[in-house]
Amino acid sequence: MGLDVRVKKRLKHFDLDISFSCPDGKIFVLIGPSGGGKTTIIRMIAGLERPDEGLIRYQDETWYDFSLKLCLTPQKRRLGYVFQEYTLFPHLTLYGNAAFAAVEKKQVNALLDFFGIAHLRDSKPHMVSGGERQRCAICQAVARQPRVLLLDEPFSALDVVTRRALREELKSLQGIRSIPIIYVTHDINEALYLADEMLTIVEGKVDMEWMERMAARKDAAGKLPKVAREPRLTLVY
């Protein structure tokens, strides 16, 4: 059970051809270089883009089936989707945003509390920091009680410290949910920290060797000190 995805789509520079399944309660990480089609996959799961062919199923409900010419609208899929940045509604307060599609209004305050932004509930998104905005975006998605949670590089625009804090919050949040979470990133550390399962996507195809190549490059020391090549890694760990 969980989410099954098998999609093909012709993109501008390459063809996307991916299949995977993500069980309930697991974090499934899609990793790979930018421009490799990861966001397109997420958008197809969300119903914002249509695959050329394939099948997307959640449990026993079909969301997309090429052979049946079936494609559910995003509204009917009931998922949570956190975009990279700037997707809170600017005219609403943080509370208004989190409660935007909440199933139970009571849960909203608890979520804001959990993410430590309850004191900002009456602030507008432009008045708070990037990390607080993304926390609120996660509250908004989770308050909807989604069946699948899609996170598309949700922390990529944040500083290292905030990222790490948010990562941990997300990981501890996962404990109380039992839904599949698809997480897109190009950051290997993030992937290793969060993933229950991982899929490497390069130019629209699964490429499990990409990780090894990246790791090998790191190990091929001698030419450049590691600190110089990956300063960010040494900061985090």
């Binding site: 119903g47 914002l48 995003p74 909807r144």
Partner: peptide
């Protein structure tokens, strides 16, 4: 208006 805001509203279930 940012297209993503509208998409976000759709994903959140708004017609």
């Amino acid at each position: 208006i940012d297209r993503r805001l509208i998409e976000s509203a759709y994903v959140l279930g708004l017609s």
